[in-house]
Nucleic acid binder design. Structure first.
Length: 420
RNA sequence: GGAGGGAUGGCCGAGCGGUCAAAGGCAGCAGACUGUAAAUCUGCCGACGUACGUCUACGCAGGUUCGAAUCCUGCUCCCUCCA
């Protein structure tokens, strides 16, 4: 590898497949290249599954290339059939707009947007897709696609084989994504599209369309699907996805997610999801036994800082330290789910089951009861034995906050509100 | 168009008139062991009630029956074979 960008990607394990790696490398070695990554606007937040793409954007910019962030405001109206057994419910314009607004916040910390030649640009393909004229589009681009070939793509073939219906609308998705590439090539001289490995088919369609229409060789590159060593897809937990937006998953929980990485994944994740130097990572992943916990903290710090910023890291780390490393510390400041009870409520007494439920530590009161029976519930680190326990003013003694724990890792605070 | 099979809890999958809140597996949660890891072992795993209990749930809508996830009718969706 000659180019800085591809060297980094290669060393850090970002490359799964590429159309012509050598030619791309030569091209990127010569100067700044505009490259794009497309994102669906199907949810209000990304989760860690998309994080690898965001890291790639960071490295693009870091190595002097020109990142184009494409949000699929237009293609989301179609719905990417890739990897899906049946068509998704279609979103309306409003929902898509909301999603775009909420999604784009994530990029701001990772890359710099602006008007300069190396500043990232945020784009929405609705800007060109919405105004396409059907018959013109068919005449100009429809001739470059054969049904024979389109039917051979995995996304289509699977549906056909299983006799799950695929609508004509969805069938067209790949044409529109291919057209995006062409449009970005024309507008910004974009030479490279990067995406997850499942996007391979869509990406090569774009490469091909640009070659046929503009007679230019452009490139495609995919990143691997990241799984944990135990084989699970990244970021799926019982609590739901590991969201990147703080309103869906608190920075503390995000930090914890990384803190709890399996030993075997630490090195790989440090390379992919932090920007630490490779030397440093080598040192960290060589740690053995309990020592590797230090590496996990560094991973959690770096990954959290990348998305939520240094402030959030400090808070998360302080909270974690209070919870796990020092007992009886002052918890007032900790960033935990908190329930404030008024004096009125405390006069009457509040069932401990209700408190667990309202704190979100358990999904129902029954679950809270089972937790207590299993010995996993604690009040200020003392196991709760009685499910009938009620919290009253007296429970607080001289303190203003109580710590409730569900297992070792999930905690919440109950505060006493003073009326006056 | 014809013939047959199927739809069960987050997923897979048994049950085929009462003993069914529904076997078993996976996922999940808790406990033990550890290192906030993995593996292993143990317990839990619809909601509500302190509890004998009540409610909701086996594709949808009706029906038969003292009693239905289980039988009947209609509907919807899926699968297999034949044309």
């Amino acid at each position: 590898m000659k180019s800085e960008f591809l060297t980094i990607l290669n060393d850090r394990g970002f490359i799964h497949q590429a159309t012509d790696l050598e030619a791309l490398d030569a091209c990127m070695g010569e100067g700044s290249v505009a490259a794009y990554i497309g994102f669906d606007a199907t949810a209000t937040s990304f989760h860690v599954g998309s994080l690898i793409q965001i890291m790639v954007l960071y490295w693009l910019q870091k190595t002097g290339n020109h990142p184009l962030v494409l949000i699929g405001g237009g293609t989301t109206k179609i719905g990417d059939p890739t990897g899906k057994d049946e068509s998704r419910k279609l979103l309306n314009d409003n929902e898509i707009q909301e999603n775009i607004k909420s999604l784009s916040k994530v990029f701001e910390r990772a890359i710099a947007f602006g008007k300069g030649p190396k500043d990232a640009i945020l784009l929405n393909n609705a800007d060109w897709l919405d105004t396409l004229n059907y018959s013109t589009f068919l005449r100009e681009y429809g001739t470059h696609f054969t049904i024979n070939r389109m039917l051979s793509f995995e996304s289509v073939r699977l549906r056909l084989e299983r006799e799950h219906p695929m609508t004509f609308l969805e069938f067209n998705y790949m044409l529109l994504q291919a057209y995006d590439f062409l449009e970005l090539y024309k507008r910004y001289g974009c030479l490279l599209q990067i995406g997850g490995s499942d996007q391979w088919g869509n990406i090569i369609n774009g490469v091909e369309l640009v070659r046929r229409v503009a007679h230019k060789t452009v490139f495609g590159l995919t990143t691997p699907l990241i799984t944990t060593s135990s084989g699970a897809k990244m970021g799926k937990t019982s609590q739901g996805a590991i969201w990147l937006n703080a309103d869906l998953l608190s920075p503390y929980d995000y930090w914890q997610f990384w803190r709890n990485t399996e030993d075997q994944d630490v090195g790989r994740f440090l390379r992919l999801f932090t920007t630490l130097s490779l030397d440093e990572i080598k040192r960290l992943e060589a740690l053995e036994g309990a020592e590797i916990n230090e590496a996990k903290k560094i991973l959690a710090d770096a990954a959290t800082a990348f998305i939520h910023g240094e402030e959030a890291v400090k808070e998360a780390r302080a909270t974690a330290q209070k919870l796990f490393e020092s007992s009886g510390a002052n918890l007032e400041e900790a960033s935990l789910p908190t329930l404030s009870l008024s004096e009125g409520e405390l006069e009457k007494g509040m069932s401990i089951l209700d408190v667990f439920h309202r704190l979100g530590l358990t999904a129902s009161k029954g679950e809270a009861r089972r937790l207590i029976e299993a010995g996993g519930a604690r009040l200020n680190d003392v196991p709760i034995k009685d499910a009938l326990l009620t919290l009253t003013v007296a429970s607080f003694e001289s303190k203003t906050a109580l710590k409730l724990s569900a297992g070792k890792k999930r905690h919440g605070l109950v505060k006493k509100l003073t009326n006056f």
